[in-house]
Amino acid sequence: MTYFIWSAIVIIALSMVALLFRVVKGPTPSDRVIALDTLGIALICIVGLYSILVNTKFFLEIILLLAILSFIGTIAFSKFIEKGDIITRDDSR
């Protein structure tokens, strides 16, 4: 079981390297935003697998925290791509 979880962690780490390449290289800003969101999800997966490995539940709050931050970051980037600025004074203009 331990070898299975370690190999899963290694596979997710390799996929994070590929996602980092897409963040740096990515031709359009949409590619970079999607790669950053997927990096957050891969990080959540690694934290979950590691908390299975060391048999603790103290890391489960970190998972929810990372999910919240990744969600807000993705929404902010999407609004930046769509409208040009993130925080506006009056939305009806």
């Binding site: 807000i72 929404i75 609004k79 993130i86 925080i87 506006t88 009056d90 939305d91």
Partner: peptide, 22 residues
């Protein structure tokens, strides 16, 4: 400290989805 930052991020989510006046 962490609770304050998470609360601030919740209000930031409202500010991003709506606008500052709302």
């Amino acid at each position: 400290f962490v609770g304050g930052l998470v609360t601030a991020s919740a209000i930031v989510l409202l500010i991003i989805a709506f606008d500052l006046n709302t």
